[in-house]
Design a protein around this nucleic acid. Structure first.
Lengths: 160, 160
DNA sequence: CGGAAATGCTTCAGGCCTAAAATATTTATA
DNA sequence: TATAAATATTTTAGGCCTGAAGCATTTCCG
Protein backbone atom coordinates (compact mmCIF):
# COMPACT_ATOMS: atom_id res chain seq x y z
CA UNK A 1 0.00 0.00 0.00
CA UNK A 2 1.43 3.36 -1.02
CA UNK A 3 1.50 6.49 1.07
CA UNK A 4 -0.83 8.09 -1.44
CA UNK A 5 -3.44 5.40 -1.04
CA UNK A 6 -3.10 5.57 2.73
CA UNK A 7 -3.81 9.26 2.90
CA UNK A 8 -6.48 9.39 0.22
CA UNK A 9 -9.89 10.33 1.55
CA UNK A 10 -12.18 7.32 2.09
CA UNK A 11 -15.02 6.76 -0.31
CA UNK A 12 -17.53 7.52 2.41
CA UNK A 13 -15.94 9.90 4.89
CA UNK A 14 -16.90 9.43 8.50
CA UNK A 15 -18.66 12.79 8.62
CA UNK A 16 -20.98 11.69 5.82
CA UNK A 17 -21.61 8.44 7.60
CA UNK A 18 -22.56 10.31 10.77
CA UNK A 19 -24.82 12.55 8.73
CA UNK A 20 -26.58 9.46 7.39
CA UNK A 21 -26.90 8.20 10.95
CA UNK A 22 -28.44 11.46 12.09
CA UNK A 23 -30.95 11.39 9.26
CA UNK A 24 -31.88 7.80 10.11
CA UNK A 25 -32.25 8.67 13.76
CA UNK A 26 -34.45 11.61 12.93
CA UNK A 27 -36.63 9.68 10.53
CA UNK A 28 -37.04 6.79 12.93
CA UNK A 29 -38.00 9.03 15.78
CA UNK A 30 -40.33 11.12 13.65
CA UNK A 31 -42.19 8.17 12.20
CA UNK A 32 -42.73 6.61 15.61
CA UNK A 33 -43.74 9.95 17.01
CA UNK A 34 -46.22 10.52 14.21
CA UNK A 35 -47.76 7.11 14.75
CA UNK A 36 -48.13 7.61 18.50
CA UNK A 37 -49.52 11.11 18.00
CA UNK A 38 -52.09 9.76 15.60
CA UNK A 39 -53.24 6.96 17.89
CA UNK A 40 -53.41 9.22 20.94
CA UNK A 41 -55.55 11.63 19.00
CA UNK A 42 -57.96 9.15 17.45
CA UNK A 43 -58.30 6.81 20.43
CA UNK A 44 -58.02 9.18 23.37
CA UNK A 45 -58.45 12.71 21.98
CA UNK A 46 -55.22 13.80 23.60
CA UNK A 47 -52.09 15.33 22.08
CA UNK A 48 -48.61 13.88 22.46
CA UNK A 49 -47.28 16.90 24.38
CA UNK A 50 -50.21 16.64 26.76
CA UNK A 51 -49.47 12.97 27.26
CA UNK A 52 -45.82 13.77 27.88
CA UNK A 53 -46.74 16.28 30.55
CA UNK A 54 -49.09 13.85 32.26
CA UNK A 55 -46.41 11.16 32.16
CA UNK A 56 -43.99 13.51 33.86
CA UNK A 57 -46.54 14.46 36.49
CA UNK A 58 -47.47 10.84 37.11
CA UNK A 59 -43.96 10.30 38.43
CA UNK A 60 -44.44 12.93 41.14
CA UNK A 61 -47.57 12.37 43.11
CA UNK A 62 -46.80 15.38 45.27
CA UNK A 63 -46.44 17.52 42.17
CA UNK A 64 -43.59 19.60 40.74
CA UNK A 65 -43.23 23.18 39.61
CA UNK A 66 -43.27 24.54 36.08
CA UNK A 67 -39.52 24.94 35.71
CA UNK A 68 -38.76 21.37 36.77
CA UNK A 69 -41.44 20.20 34.40
CA UNK A 70 -40.05 22.11 31.44
CA UNK A 71 -36.56 20.78 32.20
CA UNK A 72 -37.78 17.20 32.31
CA UNK A 73 -39.51 17.58 28.99
CA UNK A 74 -36.69 19.54 27.39
CA UNK A 75 -39.04 22.25 26.20
CA UNK A 76 -39.19 25.96 26.90
CA UNK A 77 -40.75 27.39 29.98
CA UNK A 78 -43.42 29.33 28.18
CA UNK A 79 -44.42 26.27 26.24
CA UNK A 80 -45.43 24.37 29.35
CA UNK A 81 -47.72 27.19 30.40
CA UNK A 82 -50.00 26.63 27.44
CA UNK A 83 -50.10 22.86 27.75
CA UNK A 84 -50.91 23.06 31.46
CA UNK A 85 -53.59 25.65 30.70
CA UNK A 86 -55.35 23.22 28.39
CA UNK A 87 -54.97 20.25 30.72
CA UNK A 88 -56.28 22.36 33.59
CA UNK A 89 -59.26 23.42 31.49
CA UNK A 90 -60.03 19.72 31.08
CA UNK A 91 -59.66 19.21 34.85
CA UNK A 92 -56.80 16.75 34.33
CA UNK A 93 -54.22 18.76 36.29
CA UNK A 94 -54.37 21.48 38.91
CA UNK A 95 -52.08 24.24 40.14
CA UNK A 96 -51.46 24.56 43.85
CA UNK A 97 -49.85 27.53 45.55
CA UNK A 98 -47.12 26.46 47.93
CA UNK A 99 -46.86 28.41 51.19
CA UNK A 100 -43.19 29.34 50.97
CA UNK A 101 -42.75 30.85 47.49
CA UNK A 102 -45.40 32.98 45.92
CA UNK A 103 -43.66 33.12 42.55
CA UNK A 104 -44.15 29.49 41.74
CA UNK A 105 -46.70 26.79 42.24
CA UNK A 106 -46.99 23.08 42.18
CA UNK A 107 -48.70 21.22 39.35
CA UNK A 108 -50.33 17.85 40.03
CA UNK A 109 -52.58 15.38 38.29
CA UNK A 110 -56.15 15.44 39.53
CA UNK A 111 -57.69 12.06 40.46
CA UNK A 112 -59.46 12.22 37.11
CA UNK A 113 -56.15 12.98 35.41
CA UNK A 114 -54.35 10.13 37.17
CA UNK A 115 -57.11 7.67 36.30
CA UNK A 116 -57.14 8.71 32.68
CA UNK A 117 -53.36 8.63 32.47
CA UNK A 118 -53.25 5.06 33.76
CA UNK A 119 -55.46 3.94 30.92
CA UNK A 120 -53.68 5.89 28.22
CA UNK A 121 -50.23 4.90 29.47
CA UNK A 122 -51.12 1.24 29.22
CA UNK A 123 -52.16 1.62 25.60
CA UNK A 124 -49.13 3.76 24.89
CA UNK A 125 -46.78 1.12 26.26
CA UNK A 126 -48.35 -1.56 24.13
CA UNK A 127 -48.08 0.62 21.01
CA UNK A 128 -44.41 1.22 21.64
CA UNK A 129 -43.96 -2.48 22.24
CA UNK A 130 -45.55 -3.12 18.88
CA UNK A 131 -43.64 -0.42 17.01
CA UNK A 132 -40.30 -1.54 18.44
CA UNK A 133 -41.06 -5.23 18.06
CA UNK A 134 -37.95 -5.56 15.92
CA UNK A 135 -35.73 -5.18 18.97
CA UNK A 136 -35.24 -8.02 21.41
CA UNK A 137 -34.04 -7.59 24.97
CA UNK A 138 -30.33 -7.56 24.15
CA UNK A 139 -30.64 -5.26 21.15
CA UNK A 140 -32.77 -2.83 23.09
CA UNK A 141 -30.33 -2.79 25.96
CA UNK A 142 -27.37 -2.18 23.65
CA UNK A 143 -29.16 0.60 21.84
CA UNK A 144 -30.22 2.29 25.06
CA UNK A 145 -26.60 2.23 26.12
CA UNK A 146 -25.36 3.67 22.84
CA UNK A 147 -27.93 6.44 22.73
CA UNK A 148 -27.40 7.33 26.35
CA UNK A 149 -24.23 9.25 25.75
CA UNK A 150 -25.70 11.31 22.95
CA UNK A 151 -27.79 13.82 24.79
CA UNK A 152 -24.81 14.81 26.93
CA UNK A 153 -22.09 15.50 24.38
CA UNK A 154 -21.71 18.93 22.92
CA UNK A 155 -24.97 20.16 24.38
CA UNK A 156 -25.53 23.23 26.42
CA UNK A 157 -24.66 22.67 30.03
CA UNK A 158 -27.64 21.03 31.66
CA UNK A 159 -27.63 19.29 35.00
CA UNK A 160 -28.98 16.11 33.57
CA UNK B 1 -36.21 -24.38 38.59
CA UNK B 2 -39.90 -24.59 39.31
CA UNK B 3 -42.69 -24.09 36.85
CA UNK B 4 -43.80 -21.09 38.87
CA UNK B 5 -40.42 -19.41 38.57
CA UNK B 6 -40.33 -20.17 34.86
CA UNK B 7 -43.62 -18.47 34.14
CA UNK B 8 -43.23 -15.54 36.52
CA UNK B 9 -43.01 -12.23 34.73
CA UNK B 10 -39.45 -10.94 34.33
CA UNK B 11 -38.30 -8.10 36.55
CA UNK B 12 -38.09 -5.79 33.56
CA UNK B 13 -40.60 -6.94 30.98
CA UNK B 14 -39.59 -6.47 27.38
CA UNK B 15 -42.32 -3.93 26.81
CA UNK B 16 -40.86 -1.70 29.53
CA UNK B 17 -37.43 -2.11 28.02
CA UNK B 18 -38.76 -1.02 24.64
CA UNK B 19 -40.45 1.93 26.27
CA UNK B 20 -37.12 2.98 27.76
CA UNK B 21 -35.57 2.60 24.33
CA UNK B 22 -38.20 4.80 22.78
CA UNK B 23 -37.67 7.49 25.39
CA UNK B 24 -33.92 7.38 24.84
CA UNK B 25 -34.38 7.58 21.10
CA UNK B 26 -36.69 10.54 21.47
CA UNK B 27 -34.43 12.39 23.89
CA UNK B 28 -31.36 11.81 21.75
CA UNK B 29 -33.05 13.01 18.63
CA UNK B 30 -34.60 16.01 20.37
CA UNK B 31 -31.40 17.18 21.95
CA UNK B 32 -29.49 16.98 18.68
CA UNK B 33 -32.33 18.68 16.89
CA UNK B 34 -32.43 21.47 19.45
CA UNK B 35 -28.71 22.02 19.13
CA UNK B 36 -28.82 22.15 15.33
CA UNK B 37 -31.84 24.43 15.40
CA UNK B 38 -30.04 26.79 17.73
CA UNK B 39 -26.88 26.95 15.64
CA UNK B 40 -28.77 27.41 12.39
CA UNK B 41 -30.66 30.27 13.93
CA UNK B 42 -27.75 32.09 15.54
CA UNK B 43 -25.21 31.53 12.77
CA UNK B 44 -27.33 31.60 9.64
CA UNK B 45 -30.71 33.05 10.64
CA UNK B 46 -32.49 30.08 9.17
CA UNK B 47 -34.90 27.62 10.76
CA UNK B 48 -34.40 23.88 10.77
CA UNK B 49 -37.52 23.19 8.68
CA UNK B 50 -36.33 25.71 6.12
CA UNK B 51 -32.95 24.00 6.03
CA UNK B 52 -34.65 20.62 5.62
CA UNK B 53 -36.63 21.89 2.67
CA UNK B 54 -33.55 23.36 1.02
CA UNK B 55 -31.67 20.11 1.57
CA UNK B 56 -34.46 18.20 -0.15
CA UNK B 57 -34.52 20.65 -3.06
CA UNK B 58 -30.74 20.55 -3.39
CA UNK B 59 -31.03 16.91 -4.40
CA UNK B 60 -33.28 17.77 -7.35
CA UNK B 61 -31.77 20.45 -9.49
CA UNK B 62 -34.72 20.25 -11.86
CA UNK B 63 -37.12 20.75 -8.95
CA UNK B 64 -39.95 18.70 -7.50
CA UNK B 65 -43.58 19.38 -6.68
CA UNK B 66 -45.12 20.09 -3.29
CA UNK B 67 -46.49 16.61 -2.70
CA UNK B 68 -43.17 14.89 -3.36
CA UNK B 69 -41.52 17.42 -1.10
CA UNK B 70 -43.91 16.83 1.78
CA UNK B 71 -43.51 13.07 1.41
CA UNK B 72 -39.74 13.33 1.53
CA UNK B 73 -39.88 15.43 4.66
CA UNK B 74 -42.61 13.38 6.30
CA UNK B 75 -44.67 16.46 7.03
CA UNK B 76 -48.15 17.46 5.98
CA UNK B 77 -48.91 18.99 2.65
CA UNK B 78 -50.21 22.24 4.05
CA UNK B 79 -47.15 22.64 6.19
CA UNK B 80 -44.83 22.82 3.21
CA UNK B 81 -46.89 25.64 1.73
CA UNK B 82 -45.94 27.98 4.55
CA UNK B 83 -42.28 27.09 4.56
CA UNK B 84 -42.00 27.54 0.82
CA UNK B 85 -43.85 30.86 1.12
CA UNK B 86 -41.20 32.16 3.50
CA UNK B 87 -38.28 30.81 1.49
CA UNK B 88 -39.77 32.31 -1.66
CA UNK B 89 -40.15 35.66 0.09
CA UNK B 90 -36.42 35.50 0.79
CA UNK B 91 -35.77 34.63 -2.88
CA UNK B 92 -34.18 31.30 -1.92
CA UNK B 93 -36.66 29.14 -3.85
CA UNK B 94 -39.06 29.73 -6.71
CA UNK B 95 -42.24 28.10 -8.00
CA UNK B 96 -42.44 27.21 -11.67
CA UNK B 97 -45.61 26.24 -13.49
CA UNK B 98 -45.13 23.12 -15.60
CA UNK B 99 -46.87 23.03 -18.96
CA UNK B 100 -48.74 19.77 -18.54
CA UNK B 101 -50.53 20.05 -15.19
CA UNK B 102 -52.01 23.28 -13.99
CA UNK B 103 -52.84 21.93 -10.53
CA UNK B 104 -49.25 21.60 -9.45
CA UNK B 105 -45.95 23.33 -9.91
CA UNK B 106 -42.29 22.69 -9.53
CA UNK B 107 -40.26 24.17 -6.70
CA UNK B 108 -36.55 24.81 -7.18
CA UNK B 109 -33.69 26.52 -5.38
CA UNK B 110 -32.73 29.83 -6.91
CA UNK B 111 -29.02 30.36 -7.62
CA UNK B 112 -28.94 32.43 -4.44
CA UNK B 113 -30.64 29.61 -2.56
CA UNK B 114 -28.26 26.98 -3.92
CA UNK B 115 -25.22 29.09 -3.04
CA UNK B 116 -26.46 29.73 0.47
CA UNK B 117 -27.40 26.11 0.98
CA UNK B 118 -23.90 24.96 0.02
CA UNK B 119 -22.45 27.08 2.79
CA UNK B 120 -24.98 26.13 5.44
CA UNK B 121 -24.85 22.43 4.56
CA UNK B 122 -21.12 22.37 5.08
CA UNK B 123 -21.45 23.81 8.57
CA UNK B 124 -24.38 21.51 9.29
CA UNK B 125 -22.37 18.44 8.35
CA UNK B 126 -19.52 19.46 10.61
CA UNK B 127 -21.92 20.06 13.51
CA UNK B 128 -23.43 16.62 13.10
CA UNK B 129 -19.95 15.19 12.89
CA UNK B 130 -19.16 16.86 16.19
CA UNK B 131 -22.39 15.91 17.92
CA UNK B 132 -22.11 12.27 16.84
CA UNK B 133 -18.38 12.09 17.51
CA UNK B 134 -19.05 9.22 19.91
CA UNK B 135 -19.77 6.89 17.00
CA UNK B 136 -17.01 5.44 14.89
CA UNK B 137 -17.47 4.05 11.39
CA UNK B 138 -18.53 0.59 12.50
CA UNK B 139 -20.88 1.76 15.23
CA UNK B 140 -22.51 4.25 12.91
CA UNK B 141 -22.98 1.63 10.24
CA UNK B 142 -24.52 -0.82 12.70
CA UNK B 143 -26.86 1.77 14.09
CA UNK B 144 -27.95 2.92 10.66
CA UNK B 145 -28.78 -0.67 9.88
CA UNK B 146 -30.74 -1.18 13.09
CA UNK B 147 -32.70 2.00 12.74
CA UNK B 148 -33.42 1.36 9.11
CA UNK B 149 -36.14 -1.15 9.78
CA UNK B 150 -37.94 1.06 12.23
CA UNK B 151 -39.65 3.53 9.99
CA UNK B 152 -41.19 0.71 8.00
CA UNK B 153 -42.72 -1.54 10.65
CA UNK B 154 -46.20 -0.88 11.85
CA UNK B 155 -46.45 2.42 10.05
CA UNK B 156 -49.07 3.49 7.66
CA UNK B 157 -48.43 2.15 4.21
CA UNK B 158 -45.97 4.48 2.57
CA UNK B 159 -44.02 3.73 -0.58
CA UNK B 160 -40.70 4.40 1.05
C1' DC C 1 -31.77 47.70 55.63
C1' DG C 2 -32.06 48.32 50.71
C1' DG C 3 -30.93 47.90 46.07
C1' DA C 4 -29.19 44.47 42.63
C1' DA C 5 -29.32 40.03 40.87
C1' DA C 6 -31.59 35.84 40.45
C1' DT C 7 -35.65 33.01 40.01
C1' DG C 8 -40.42 31.49 38.50
C1' DC C 9 -43.77 32.24 35.57
C1' DT C 10 -46.51 34.44 31.67
C1' DT C 11 -47.03 36.99 27.52
C1' DC C 12 -45.84 38.07 22.89
C1' DA C 13 -44.56 37.65 18.05
C1' DG C 14 -43.40 34.59 14.76
C1' DG C 15 -42.86 30.19 12.85
C1' DC C 16 -44.05 25.13 12.66
C1' DC C 17 -47.42 21.44 12.36
C1' DT C 18 -51.71 18.77 11.74
C1' DA C 19 -56.34 17.28 10.11
C1' DA C 20 -60.05 18.69 7.64
C1' DA C 21 -62.42 21.51 4.39
C1' DA C 22 -62.29 24.05 0.19
C1' DT C 23 -60.69 24.89 -4.69
C1' DA C 24 -59.01 23.74 -9.01
C1' DT C 25 -57.72 20.62 -12.32
C1' DT C 26 -57.09 16.11 -14.38
C1' DT C 27 -58.28 11.31 -15.10
C1' DA C 28 -61.30 7.46 -15.21
C1' DT C 29 -65.49 5.54 -16.43
C1' DA C 30 -70.32 4.78 -17.43
C1' DT D 1 -69.26 13.18 -23.44
C1' DA D 2 -70.87 13.86 -18.88
C1' DT D 3 -69.93 13.05 -14.44
C1' DA D 4 -67.60 10.90 -10.71
C1' DA D 5 -63.31 10.04 -8.61
C1' DA D 6 -58.71 11.15 -7.94
C1' DT D 7 -54.95 14.39 -7.48
C1' DA D 8 -52.46 18.82 -6.18
C1' DT D 9 -52.51 22.56 -3.58
C1' DT D 10 -54.19 26.14 -0.24
C1' DT D 11 -56.78 27.64 3.62
C1' DT D 12 -58.41 27.36 8.25
C1' DA D 13 -58.68 26.44 13.17
C1' DG D 14 -56.27 24.92 16.81
C1' DG D 15 -52.30 23.43 19.21
C1' DC D 16 -47.10 23.31 19.81
C1' DC D 17 -42.69 25.64 20.22
C1' DT D 18 -39.05 29.18 20.78
C1' DG D 19 -36.52 33.34 22.35
C1' DA D 20 -37.13 37.57 24.30
C1' DA D 21 -39.48 40.83 27.06
C1' DG D 22 -42.13 41.70 31.12
C1' DC D 23 -43.84 41.11 35.91
C1' DA D 24 -43.65 39.53 40.55
C1' DT D 25 -41.17 37.68 44.25
C1' DT D 26 -37.16 36.08 46.60
C1' DT D 27 -32.32 36.01 47.64
C1' DC D 28 -27.83 38.00 47.83
C1' DC D 29 -24.79 41.11 49.60
C1' DG D 30 -22.73 45.73 50.49
Amino acid sequence: MTVASKTRAPVRPLSKQRLRLWIRLLRASRSIEAELRDRLRTEFSITLPQFDVMAALARYEAGINMTELSRMLMVSNGNVTGIIDRLAADRLVLRQAPANDRRSYIVRLTPKGAAQFAIVAKAHESWVDELLAGFDEAEAEALIEQLGGLAATGMKEREL
